[in-house]
Design a protein around this nucleic acid. Structure first.
Length: 520
RNA sequence: GUCCCCAUCGUCCAGAGGCCCAGGAUACGGCCCUUUCAAGGCUGAGACACGGGUUCGAAUCCCGUUGGGGACGCCA
Protein backbone atom coordinates (compact mmCIF):
# COMPACT_ATOMS: atom_id res chain seq x y z
CA UNK A 1 0.00 0.00 0.00
CA UNK A 2 1.35 3.37 -0.98
CA UNK A 3 1.17 6.00 1.70
CA UNK A 4 -0.85 9.00 0.57
CA UNK A 5 -1.29 12.08 2.71
CA UNK A 6 -2.94 15.37 2.02
CA UNK A 7 -3.13 18.90 3.24
CA UNK A 8 -6.42 20.62 2.65
CA UNK A 9 -6.16 24.40 2.89
CA UNK A 10 -9.14 26.66 2.48
CA UNK A 11 -8.28 29.52 0.19
CA UNK A 12 -7.95 32.33 2.70
CA UNK A 13 -5.26 34.40 1.08
CA UNK A 14 -2.41 33.50 3.40
CA UNK A 15 -0.52 30.53 4.72
CA UNK A 16 -0.55 30.29 8.48
CA UNK A 17 2.40 29.03 10.52
CA UNK A 18 0.30 26.37 12.21
CA UNK A 19 -1.03 25.18 8.88
CA UNK A 20 2.42 24.85 7.41
CA UNK A 21 3.54 22.77 10.34
CA UNK A 22 0.68 20.39 9.68
CA UNK A 23 1.46 20.37 5.97
CA UNK A 24 5.14 19.76 6.69
CA UNK A 25 4.39 16.71 8.82
CA UNK A 26 2.13 15.36 6.07
CA UNK A 27 4.80 15.98 3.50
CA UNK A 28 7.52 14.38 5.61
CA UNK A 29 5.43 11.33 6.39
CA UNK A 30 4.65 10.79 2.73
CA UNK A 31 8.26 11.28 1.69
CA UNK A 32 9.51 9.08 4.49
CA UNK A 33 7.41 6.22 3.22
CA UNK A 34 7.99 6.82 -0.44
CA UNK A 35 4.39 7.87 -0.87
CA UNK A 36 2.55 10.86 -2.23
CA UNK A 37 1.57 14.16 -0.73
CA UNK A 38 -1.42 15.93 -2.20
CA UNK A 39 -3.02 19.28 -1.92
CA UNK A 40 -6.76 19.47 -1.90
CA UNK A 41 -8.53 22.78 -1.89
CA UNK A 42 -11.36 22.92 0.59
CA UNK A 43 -13.51 25.56 -1.00
CA UNK A 44 -16.96 24.11 -0.41
CA UNK A 45 -18.06 27.41 1.00
CA UNK A 46 -18.49 29.24 -2.30
CA UNK A 47 -15.33 31.32 -2.64
CA UNK A 48 -15.30 34.65 -4.31
CA UNK A 49 -11.82 35.20 -5.65
CA UNK A 50 -10.52 31.70 -5.59
CA UNK A 51 -7.33 32.19 -7.53
CA UNK A 52 -6.52 35.37 -5.66
CA UNK A 53 -6.99 33.62 -2.34
CA UNK A 54 -5.20 30.48 -3.38
CA UNK A 55 -2.12 31.84 -5.07
CA UNK A 56 -0.36 33.07 -1.91
CA UNK A 57 -0.82 29.64 -0.39
CA UNK A 58 0.61 27.78 -3.35
CA UNK A 59 3.44 30.29 -3.56
CA UNK A 60 4.15 29.70 0.09
CA UNK A 61 4.42 25.97 -0.40
CA UNK A 62 6.70 26.40 -3.39
CA UNK A 63 8.90 28.79 -1.48
CA UNK A 64 9.20 26.32 1.38
CA UNK A 65 10.01 23.53 -1.02
CA UNK A 66 7.02 21.45 0.02
CA UNK A 67 6.14 20.00 -3.34
CA UNK A 68 2.87 18.21 -3.90
CA UNK A 69 2.43 15.23 -6.17
CA UNK A 70 -1.18 15.89 -6.99
CA UNK A 71 -3.32 18.95 -6.64
CA UNK A 72 -3.88 22.39 -8.08
CA UNK A 73 -1.54 23.41 -10.89
CA UNK A 74 0.05 19.97 -11.08
CA UNK A 75 -3.09 17.92 -11.68
CA UNK A 76 -3.17 14.19 -11.13
CA UNK A 77 -5.28 11.11 -11.77
CA UNK A 78 -8.03 12.19 -9.38
CA UNK A 79 -8.50 15.74 -10.65
CA UNK A 80 -10.16 18.04 -9.97
CA UNK A 81 -8.67 18.66 -6.53
CA UNK A 82 -11.10 21.41 -5.68
CA UNK A 83 -13.97 20.39 -3.47
CA UNK A 84 -16.24 22.91 -5.12
CA UNK A 85 -15.87 21.01 -8.37
CA UNK A 86 -16.80 17.75 -6.78
CA UNK A 87 -20.25 18.75 -5.61
CA UNK A 88 -22.03 16.12 -7.70
CA UNK A 89 -19.93 13.42 -6.20
CA UNK A 90 -20.73 14.65 -2.69
CA UNK A 91 -24.44 14.83 -3.46
CA UNK A 92 -24.39 11.26 -4.67
CA UNK A 93 -22.75 10.23 -1.41
CA UNK A 94 -25.48 12.03 0.53
CA UNK A 95 -28.08 10.08 -1.43
CA UNK A 96 -26.30 6.86 -0.62
CA UNK A 97 -26.28 7.73 3.06
CA UNK A 98 -30.00 8.42 2.91
CA UNK A 99 -30.70 5.21 1.06
CA UNK A 100 -28.80 3.11 3.56
CA UNK A 101 -30.48 4.73 6.54
CA UNK A 102 -27.25 6.23 7.86
CA UNK A 103 -28.76 9.65 7.35
CA UNK A 104 -32.24 11.14 7.36
CA UNK A 105 -34.08 14.17 6.10
CA UNK A 106 -34.62 16.65 8.85
CA UNK A 107 -37.25 19.34 8.64
CA UNK A 108 -36.40 21.32 11.76
CA UNK A 109 -35.84 25.05 11.43
CA UNK A 110 -32.73 26.74 12.71
CA UNK A 111 -34.79 28.29 15.51
CA UNK A 112 -36.14 24.96 16.64
CA UNK A 113 -32.67 23.49 16.81
CA UNK A 114 -31.42 26.50 18.66
CA UNK A 115 -34.23 26.18 21.19
CA UNK A 116 -33.27 22.60 21.92
CA UNK A 117 -29.70 23.62 22.23
CA UNK A 118 -30.55 26.36 24.72
CA UNK A 119 -32.61 23.99 26.81
CA UNK A 120 -29.78 21.49 26.95
CA UNK A 121 -27.42 24.19 28.09
CA UNK A 122 -29.76 25.33 30.79
CA UNK A 123 -30.04 21.80 32.03
CA UNK A 124 -26.27 21.54 31.95
CA UNK A 125 -26.21 18.58 29.67
CA UNK A 126 -24.77 18.05 26.26
CA UNK A 127 -27.16 18.88 23.46
CA UNK A 128 -28.56 15.95 21.54
CA UNK A 129 -31.16 16.52 18.86
CA UNK A 130 -34.59 15.06 19.66
CA UNK A 131 -35.18 14.03 16.03
CA UNK A 132 -38.66 15.51 16.28
CA UNK A 133 -38.64 16.73 12.71
CA UNK A 134 -36.94 13.66 11.32
CA UNK A 135 -38.65 12.15 8.30
CA UNK A 136 -37.88 8.52 7.61
CA UNK A 137 -40.77 7.80 5.30
CA UNK A 138 -42.11 9.57 2.23
CA UNK A 139 -45.37 10.20 4.06
CA UNK A 140 -43.62 11.98 6.91
CA UNK A 141 -41.60 14.03 4.46
CA UNK A 142 -44.71 15.01 2.52
CA UNK A 143 -46.42 16.08 5.71
CA UNK A 144 -43.56 18.36 6.73
CA UNK A 145 -43.28 19.74 3.23
CA UNK A 146 -46.93 20.57 3.00
CA UNK A 147 -46.36 22.56 6.18
CA UNK A 148 -43.87 24.60 4.20
CA UNK A 149 -40.74 23.09 5.69
CA UNK A 150 -37.64 22.10 3.80
CA UNK A 151 -35.12 19.44 4.69
CA UNK A 152 -31.45 19.22 5.40
CA UNK A 153 -29.75 15.85 5.58
CA UNK A 154 -28.54 14.75 8.98
CA UNK A 155 -26.41 11.82 10.02
CA UNK A 156 -28.30 9.27 12.05
CA UNK A 157 -25.61 8.64 14.58
CA UNK A 158 -25.64 5.55 16.80
CA UNK A 159 -26.87 6.25 20.32
CA UNK A 160 -24.98 3.54 22.06
CA UNK A 161 -21.60 1.92 22.01
CA UNK A 162 -18.25 3.55 21.37
CA UNK A 163 -16.13 4.60 18.47
CA UNK A 164 -12.59 3.43 19.11
CA UNK A 165 -9.57 3.85 16.91
CA UNK A 166 -5.83 4.06 17.13
CA UNK A 167 -4.37 7.48 16.52
CA UNK A 168 -0.73 7.52 15.50
CA UNK A 169 -0.04 10.44 17.82
CA UNK A 170 -2.64 10.16 20.57
CA UNK A 171 -2.64 6.41 20.92
CA UNK A 172 -5.90 4.56 21.51
CA UNK A 173 -8.84 6.91 21.65
CA UNK A 174 -12.47 6.21 22.32
CA UNK A 175 -15.63 8.28 21.96
CA UNK A 176 -19.10 7.44 23.09
CA UNK A 177 -21.48 7.43 20.17
CA UNK A 178 -24.25 8.76 22.36
CA UNK A 179 -22.36 11.99 22.71
CA UNK A 180 -22.16 12.53 18.97
CA UNK A 181 -24.47 14.90 17.19
CA UNK A 182 -26.67 14.16 14.22
CA UNK A 183 -24.57 16.46 12.12
CA UNK A 184 -25.94 18.08 9.02
CA UNK A 185 -24.10 16.84 5.95
CA UNK A 186 -26.20 18.49 3.26
CA UNK A 187 -28.09 21.75 3.28
CA UNK A 188 -31.63 22.22 2.04
CA UNK A 189 -30.21 23.77 -1.12
CA UNK A 190 -28.32 20.57 -1.87
CA UNK A 191 -24.84 21.79 -1.04
CA UNK A 192 -22.76 19.45 1.08
CA UNK A 193 -20.78 20.23 4.18
CA UNK A 194 -17.15 19.69 5.00
CA UNK A 195 -17.33 16.44 6.91
CA UNK A 196 -19.08 14.58 4.16
CA UNK A 197 -16.99 16.15 1.44
CA UNK A 198 -13.82 15.40 3.31
CA UNK A 199 -14.63 11.75 3.95
CA UNK A 200 -15.64 11.23 0.34
CA UNK A 201 -12.62 13.01 -1.10
CA UNK A 202 -10.18 11.27 1.18
CA UNK A 203 -11.58 8.00 -0.06
CA UNK A 204 -11.67 8.98 -3.71
CA UNK A 205 -8.12 10.29 -3.55
CA UNK A 206 -7.01 7.09 -1.85
CA UNK A 207 -5.70 8.93 1.19
CA UNK A 208 -4.21 6.43 3.61
CA UNK A 209 -3.18 8.72 6.47
CA UNK A 210 -5.06 11.76 7.68
CA UNK A 211 -2.60 13.91 9.59
CA UNK A 212 -4.18 17.07 10.93
CA UNK A 213 -4.45 19.30 13.96
CA UNK A 214 -6.12 18.11 17.18
CA UNK A 215 -9.05 20.39 16.79
CA UNK A 216 -10.25 17.78 14.33
CA UNK A 217 -9.96 14.94 16.79
CA UNK A 218 -13.55 15.29 17.94
CA UNK A 219 -14.69 15.33 14.31
CA UNK A 220 -13.19 11.93 13.71
CA UNK A 221 -16.05 9.72 14.91
CA UNK A 222 -18.54 11.30 12.56
CA UNK A 223 -16.12 11.04 9.66
CA UNK A 224 -15.50 7.42 10.47
CA UNK A 225 -19.23 6.92 10.65
CA UNK A 226 -19.64 8.43 7.21
CA UNK A 227 -16.81 6.35 5.78
CA UNK A 228 -18.24 3.15 7.20
CA UNK A 229 -21.75 3.93 6.01
CA UNK A 230 -20.41 4.53 2.53
CA UNK A 231 -18.52 1.27 2.63
CA UNK A 232 -15.08 2.84 2.76
CA UNK A 233 -12.11 1.67 4.72
CA UNK A 234 -11.22 4.43 7.16
CA UNK A 235 -7.82 6.06 6.81
CA UNK A 236 -5.31 6.00 9.65
CA UNK A 237 -5.54 9.15 11.75
CA UNK A 238 -2.84 11.20 13.44
CA UNK A 239 -3.80 14.31 15.34
CA UNK A 240 -1.05 16.83 15.91
CA UNK A 241 -1.08 19.22 18.84
CA UNK A 242 -1.90 22.75 17.82
CA UNK A 243 0.70 25.50 17.73
CA UNK A 244 0.20 27.95 20.58
CA UNK A 245 0.69 31.68 20.83
CA UNK A 246 4.06 33.07 21.87
CA UNK A 247 4.36 32.69 25.62
CA UNK A 248 0.91 31.20 26.03
CA UNK A 249 -0.93 27.94 25.70
CA UNK A 250 -3.72 29.29 23.58
CA UNK A 251 -4.07 28.26 20.00
CA UNK A 252 -2.27 30.53 17.58
CA UNK A 253 -4.65 32.41 15.40
CA UNK A 254 -4.13 34.78 12.52
CA UNK A 255 -6.45 37.50 13.65
CA UNK A 256 -4.79 38.45 16.88
CA UNK A 257 -1.73 40.34 15.79
CA UNK A 258 -2.48 43.33 17.98
CA UNK A 259 -2.58 41.02 20.97
CA UNK A 260 0.66 39.31 20.03
CA UNK A 261 2.37 42.64 19.64
CA UNK A 262 2.15 43.00 23.40
CA UNK A 263 4.50 40.06 23.59
CA UNK A 264 7.99 41.52 23.62
CA UNK A 265 9.78 38.99 21.47
CA UNK A 266 6.97 38.81 18.98
CA UNK A 267 6.98 42.57 18.64
CA UNK A 268 10.72 42.55 18.06
CA UNK A 269 10.31 40.05 15.24
CA UNK A 270 7.47 42.07 13.81
CA UNK A 271 9.31 45.40 13.99
CA UNK A 272 12.42 43.91 12.43
CA UNK A 273 10.39 42.56 9.53
CA UNK A 274 8.14 45.57 9.19
CA UNK A 275 11.12 47.90 8.81
CA UNK A 276 12.43 45.82 5.92
CA UNK A 277 9.04 45.48 4.26
CA UNK A 278 8.34 49.18 4.57
CA UNK A 279 11.70 50.04 3.08
CA UNK A 280 10.61 47.98 0.10
CA UNK A 281 7.49 50.07 -0.16
CA UNK A 282 5.15 47.41 1.08
CA UNK A 283 2.12 48.57 2.98
CA UNK A 284 2.42 46.95 6.36
CA UNK A 285 -0.80 46.36 8.23
CA UNK A 286 -1.54 43.85 10.95
CA UNK A 287 -3.93 41.98 8.68
CA UNK A 288 -1.54 41.43 5.84
CA UNK A 289 1.85 41.21 7.46
CA UNK A 290 2.66 39.17 10.51
CA UNK A 291 5.15 36.65 11.83
CA UNK A 292 2.19 34.29 12.01
CA UNK A 293 2.00 34.24 8.23
CA UNK A 294 4.57 32.45 6.09
CA UNK A 295 4.80 35.25 3.56
CA UNK A 296 6.31 37.45 6.26
CA UNK A 297 9.45 35.35 6.24
CA UNK A 298 9.79 35.41 2.51
CA UNK A 299 9.30 39.15 2.43
CA UNK A 300 11.96 39.72 5.07
CA UNK A 301 14.51 37.34 3.62
CA UNK A 302 14.49 34.24 5.80
CA UNK A 303 15.80 30.98 4.46
CA UNK A 304 12.93 28.58 3.82
CA UNK A 305 15.13 25.85 5.28
CA UNK A 306 15.35 27.75 8.55
CA UNK A 307 11.60 28.03 8.86
CA UNK A 308 11.07 24.40 7.95
CA UNK A 309 13.75 23.23 10.38
CA UNK A 310 12.26 25.31 13.17
CA UNK A 311 8.76 24.07 12.47
CA UNK A 312 9.96 20.49 12.39
CA UNK A 313 11.14 20.83 15.96
CA UNK A 314 7.89 22.36 17.13
CA UNK A 315 6.36 19.22 18.52
CA UNK A 316 8.83 16.71 17.17
CA UNK A 317 12.39 15.78 17.99
CA UNK A 318 14.83 13.08 17.09
CA UNK A 319 16.75 13.01 20.35
CA UNK A 320 18.04 15.33 23.03
CA UNK A 321 20.46 17.30 20.86
CA UNK A 322 20.07 17.12 17.12
CA UNK A 323 18.71 20.44 15.93
CA UNK A 324 19.90 20.98 12.41
CA UNK A 325 18.42 18.83 9.70
CA UNK A 326 18.77 18.81 5.96
CA UNK A 327 15.64 17.86 4.03
CA UNK A 328 17.07 14.42 3.47
CA UNK A 329 17.75 13.93 7.17
CA UNK A 330 14.27 15.09 8.09
CA UNK A 331 12.75 12.65 5.69
CA UNK A 332 14.99 9.87 6.89
CA UNK A 333 14.20 10.35 10.58
CA UNK A 334 10.67 11.65 10.73
CA UNK A 335 8.11 9.53 12.51
CA UNK A 336 4.70 10.30 13.89
CA UNK A 337 5.47 8.22 16.98
CA UNK A 338 7.86 10.93 18.13
CA UNK A 339 5.36 13.72 17.82
CA UNK A 340 4.51 15.33 21.15
CA UNK A 341 1.02 15.28 22.53
CA UNK A 342 1.12 18.69 24.16
CA UNK A 343 0.89 22.00 22.36
CA UNK A 344 4.05 24.00 21.65
CA UNK A 345 4.11 27.74 21.61
CA UNK A 346 5.55 29.58 18.69
CA UNK A 347 8.77 31.44 19.50
CA UNK A 348 9.88 33.88 16.82
CA UNK A 349 13.14 34.46 18.63
CA UNK A 350 14.20 30.87 18.42
CA UNK A 351 13.19 30.84 14.80
CA UNK A 352 15.53 33.77 14.25
CA UNK A 353 18.32 31.78 15.89
CA UNK A 354 17.75 28.97 13.39
CA UNK A 355 17.78 31.52 10.62
CA UNK A 356 21.12 32.96 11.79
CA UNK A 357 22.68 29.54 11.71
CA UNK A 358 21.45 28.83 8.20
CA UNK A 359 22.55 32.21 6.97
CA UNK A 360 26.04 31.79 8.38
CA UNK A 361 26.34 28.42 6.76
CA UNK A 362 25.78 29.91 3.30
CA UNK A 363 28.67 30.88 1.07
CA UNK A 364 29.25 34.55 0.34
CA UNK A 365 27.96 34.01 -3.20
CA UNK A 366 24.78 32.45 -1.90
CA UNK A 367 24.22 35.28 0.53
CA UNK A 368 24.79 37.78 -2.24
CA UNK A 369 22.10 36.11 -4.31
CA UNK A 370 19.68 36.32 -1.37
CA UNK A 371 20.46 39.93 -0.71
CA UNK A 372 20.35 41.21 -4.28
CA UNK A 373 16.56 41.35 -4.62
CA UNK A 374 16.45 43.63 -1.60
CA UNK A 375 19.01 46.17 -2.75
CA UNK A 376 17.46 46.06 -6.20
CA UNK A 377 14.00 46.44 -4.73
CA UNK A 378 14.82 49.69 -3.00
CA UNK A 379 16.78 51.02 -5.96
CA UNK A 380 20.18 50.96 -4.29
CA UNK A 381 21.54 49.10 -7.31
CA UNK A 382 20.24 48.59 -10.83
CA UNK A 383 18.10 45.63 -11.68
CA UNK A 384 19.96 43.64 -12.80
CA UNK A 385 23.02 45.08 -11.10
CA UNK A 386 26.09 46.14 -13.02
CA UNK A 387 29.30 44.24 -12.40
CA UNK A 388 30.75 46.92 -10.13
CA UNK A 389 27.49 47.03 -8.20
CA UNK A 390 27.51 43.30 -7.76
CA UNK A 391 31.11 43.49 -6.59
CA UNK A 392 30.12 46.15 -4.09
CA UNK A 393 27.29 44.03 -2.76
CA UNK A 394 29.71 41.14 -2.40
CA UNK A 395 32.15 43.30 -0.46
CA UNK A 396 29.43 44.52 1.87
CA UNK A 397 28.06 41.04 2.44
CA UNK A 398 31.50 39.77 3.25
CA UNK A 399 32.28 42.64 5.60
CA UNK A 400 28.89 42.49 7.32
CA UNK A 401 29.41 38.82 8.06
CA UNK A 402 27.20 37.58 10.85
CA UNK A 403 25.41 40.89 11.12
CA UNK A 404 23.29 39.82 8.17
CA UNK A 405 20.77 37.66 9.93
CA UNK A 406 18.12 37.82 7.27
CA UNK A 407 18.68 38.85 3.67
CA UNK A 408 16.71 42.05 4.24
CA UNK A 409 19.30 43.18 6.80
CA UNK A 410 21.40 44.37 3.88
CA UNK A 411 19.16 47.42 3.98
CA UNK A 412 20.95 48.43 7.16
CA UNK A 413 23.87 49.44 4.97
CA UNK A 414 22.53 51.80 2.31
CA UNK A 415 25.50 54.13 2.75
CA UNK A 416 27.71 51.76 0.80
CA UNK A 417 25.52 52.13 -2.26
CA UNK A 418 24.48 55.75 -2.09
CA UNK A 419 26.18 58.76 -3.63
CA UNK A 420 28.19 60.62 -0.97
CA UNK A 421 25.74 63.51 -0.85
CA UNK A 422 22.80 61.23 -0.12
CA UNK A 423 24.19 59.60 2.99
CA UNK A 424 22.01 60.46 5.94
CA UNK A 425 23.58 61.38 9.24
CA UNK A 426 22.32 59.97 12.46
CA UNK A 427 22.04 63.30 14.27
CA UNK A 428 22.61 61.91 17.72
CA UNK A 429 25.74 60.16 16.55
CA UNK A 430 26.93 63.24 14.70
CA UNK A 431 26.48 65.42 17.75
CA UNK A 432 28.17 62.97 20.04
CA UNK A 433 31.08 61.99 17.83
CA UNK A 434 31.73 64.85 15.44
CA UNK A 435 30.34 68.06 16.87
CA UNK A 436 32.96 68.14 19.59
CA UNK A 437 35.90 70.24 20.61
CA UNK A 438 38.97 69.43 18.53
CA UNK A 439 37.33 66.87 16.30
CA UNK A 440 37.45 69.02 13.19
CA UNK A 441 41.19 69.49 13.43
CA UNK A 442 41.80 65.82 14.02
CA UNK A 443 39.52 64.86 11.14
CA UNK A 444 41.41 67.21 8.81
CA UNK A 445 44.75 65.78 9.81
CA UNK A 446 43.56 62.23 9.47
CA UNK A 447 42.17 63.17 6.07
CA UNK A 448 45.69 64.13 5.01
CA UNK A 449 46.82 60.65 5.83
CA UNK A 450 43.99 59.13 3.83
CA UNK A 451 45.13 61.04 0.78
CA UNK A 452 48.39 59.15 0.74
CA UNK A 453 47.56 55.76 2.22
CA UNK A 454 48.61 53.12 -0.23
CA UNK A 455 47.23 50.63 -0.89
CA UNK A 456 43.79 51.75 0.25
CA UNK A 457 42.90 48.51 1.92
CA UNK A 458 41.79 47.53 5.42
CA UNK A 459 45.14 46.41 6.91
CA UNK A 460 46.94 49.47 5.58
CA UNK A 461 44.19 51.80 6.79
CA UNK A 462 44.30 50.11 10.16
CA UNK A 463 48.05 50.70 10.30
CA UNK A 464 47.65 54.29 9.18
CA UNK A 465 45.15 54.93 11.93
CA UNK A 466 47.42 53.49 14.57
CA UNK A 467 50.38 55.50 13.31
CA UNK A 468 48.16 58.55 13.39
CA UNK A 469 47.05 58.20 16.99
CA UNK A 470 50.61 57.45 18.02
CA UNK A 471 52.04 60.58 16.47
CA UNK A 472 49.12 62.71 17.65
CA UNK A 473 49.42 61.28 21.12
CA UNK A 474 45.68 60.65 21.38
CA UNK A 475 43.56 57.63 22.16
CA UNK A 476 42.06 55.83 19.22
CA UNK A 477 38.59 56.53 20.54
CA UNK A 478 39.15 60.22 19.97
CA UNK A 479 39.24 59.88 16.23
CA UNK A 480 37.85 56.57 15.10
CA UNK A 481 34.23 57.29 15.99
CA UNK A 482 34.33 60.61 14.21
CA UNK A 483 35.67 58.95 11.09
CA UNK A 484 32.97 56.35 11.21
CA UNK A 485 30.18 58.87 11.53
CA UNK A 486 31.66 61.04 8.81
CA UNK A 487 32.05 58.15 6.40
CA UNK A 488 28.88 56.19 7.07
CA UNK A 489 26.58 58.61 8.87
CA UNK A 490 26.23 56.16 11.74
CA UNK A 491 27.76 55.26 15.05
CA UNK A 492 27.37 51.55 14.45
CA UNK A 493 28.37 49.20 11.70
CA UNK A 494 30.91 46.59 10.79
CA UNK A 495 34.68 46.99 10.88
CA UNK A 496 35.60 50.57 10.12
CA UNK A 497 38.64 49.83 8.00
CA UNK A 498 36.78 47.30 5.88
CA UNK A 499 34.12 49.92 5.42
CA UNK A 500 36.54 52.63 4.37
CA UNK A 501 38.26 50.28 1.97
CA UNK A 502 34.96 49.36 0.35
CA UNK A 503 34.01 52.99 -0.07
CA UNK A 504 37.36 53.81 -1.60
CA UNK A 505 39.59 56.80 -1.20
CA UNK A 506 37.56 59.32 -3.16
CA UNK A 507 34.33 58.64 -1.30
CA UNK A 508 36.05 58.70 2.09
CA UNK A 509 37.65 62.03 1.41
CA UNK A 510 34.44 63.49 0.03
CA UNK A 511 32.44 62.29 3.01
CA UNK A 512 34.91 63.68 5.52
CA UNK A 513 34.78 67.00 3.67
CA UNK A 514 31.02 66.90 3.80
CA UNK A 515 31.04 66.30 7.55
CA UNK A 516 33.52 69.14 8.03
CA UNK A 517 31.30 71.45 5.96
CA UNK A 518 28.44 70.50 8.13
CA UNK A 519 30.41 71.51 11.22
CA UNK A 520 31.22 74.93 9.86
C1' G B 1 -22.11 24.45 31.05
C1' U B 2 -21.00 19.29 28.71
C1' C B 3 -17.27 16.08 26.73
C1' C B 4 -12.18 15.34 25.82
C1' C B 5 -7.03 16.41 26.25
C1' C B 6 -2.40 18.27 28.28
C1' A B 7 1.19 19.16 32.45
C1' U B 8 9.98 18.80 32.84
C1' C B 9 14.13 25.39 33.01
C1' G B 10 10.81 31.93 30.45
C1' U B 11 10.37 29.08 25.58
C1' C B 12 11.30 24.47 22.37
C1' C B 13 12.77 19.60 23.26
C1' A B 14 15.48 14.85 25.82
C1' G B 15 13.94 11.55 29.49
C1' A B 16 9.48 5.32 27.87
C1' G B 17 11.41 2.72 36.92
C1' G B 18 17.57 2.91 38.78
C1' C B 19 22.52 5.93 33.70
C1' C B 20 18.92 12.23 36.55
C1' C B 21 20.66 16.23 43.39
C1' A B 22 17.53 15.87 35.42
C1' G B 23 20.62 16.68 29.51
C1' G B 24 20.58 19.93 24.84
C1' A B 25 18.87 24.38 22.37
C1' U B 26 17.08 29.29 22.74
C1' A B 27 16.52 33.54 25.67
C1' C B 28 18.73 35.95 30.08
C1' G B 29 23.17 37.54 33.67
C1' G B 30 28.62 37.97 34.40
C1' C B 31 33.62 37.89 32.56
C1' C B 32 37.04 37.91 28.31
C1' C B 33 37.88 39.81 23.34
C1' U B 34 36.99 44.68 21.03
C1' U B 35 37.15 51.29 17.38
C1' U B 36 31.10 50.91 17.41
C1' C B 37 27.34 47.19 16.53
C1' A B 38 27.11 42.15 16.02
C1' A B 39 29.60 37.59 16.52
C1' G B 40 32.83 34.47 19.34
C1' G B 41 35.15 32.17 23.96
C1' C B 42 34.50 31.11 29.16
C1' U B 43 30.99 31.15 32.93
C1' G B 44 26.33 31.71 35.90
C1' A B 45 21.34 31.37 37.22
C1' G B 46 17.02 28.54 35.66
C1' A B 47 12.26 23.07 35.71
C1' C B 48 10.13 17.41 36.99
C1' A B 49 2.48 21.75 39.26
C1' C B 50 0.63 19.63 44.14
C1' G B 51 -1.02 15.45 47.20
C1' G B 52 -1.55 10.42 47.79
C1' G B 53 -0.39 5.53 46.36
C1' U B 54 2.52 1.11 43.71
C1' U B 55 7.86 -0.19 44.14
C1' C B 56 13.93 -1.84 47.27
C1' G B 57 13.78 2.53 43.97
C1' A B 58 9.40 7.33 40.28
C1' A B 59 10.25 13.06 36.29
C1' U B 60 8.89 8.24 34.43
C1' C B 61 3.23 3.69 36.50
C1' C B 62 -1.93 4.48 39.12
C1' C B 63 -5.56 7.77 41.63
C1' G B 64 -7.01 12.53 43.07
C1' U B 65 -6.38 17.94 43.26
C1' U B 66 -4.95 22.25 40.85
C1' G B 67 -3.73 24.76 36.55
C1' G B 68 -3.89 25.28 31.30
C1' G B 69 -6.13 24.10 26.68
C1' G B 70 -9.35 22.09 22.88
C1' A B 71 -14.15 20.55 20.86
C1' C B 72 -19.13 21.36 21.32
C1' G B 73 -22.13 25.17 13.68
C1' C B 74 -26.95 24.08 8.00
C1' C B 75 -17.66 27.01 9.24
C1' A B 76 -13.47 24.51 7.55
Amino acid sequence: MTVRTRFAPSPTGYLHIGGVRTALFNWLFARRHGGQFLLRIDDTDAQRNLSEALQPILDGFRWLGLDWDEGPEVGGPHAPYYQSQRAERHRAAAEQLLASGAAYRDYATAEEIQAERDTARQEKRRFLYSRRWMAETEAQAAAFESAGRSAAVRLKMPREGTCAFHDLVRGDVEFEWALEQDHVVQRADGSCLYHLASAVDDHDFAITHVIRAVEHLSNTPRQMFISAALGYEAPVFAHLPYVAEPGSAEKLSKRKLSKYLKHHEFKKAYDHGAAIAEALGRVVTPDTFSPVVVDFYRAVGYEPDALVNYLLLLGWSLDDRTETFTREQMIEHFSLERVNRSPASFDPQKLLAFQERRMQALSVEARVSRVLPFVEGVGLVDSPPTDPQRARVTDVVRAAGERLKVAGDILNYPEFFQPDADVAYDEKAFTKRVRKEGVDTRLRRFRERLVVVDPFDAPTLDQAMHDFVATEGIGIGQIIHAVRVAATGKAVGFGLFEGLAILGRAACLARIDRALDRLA
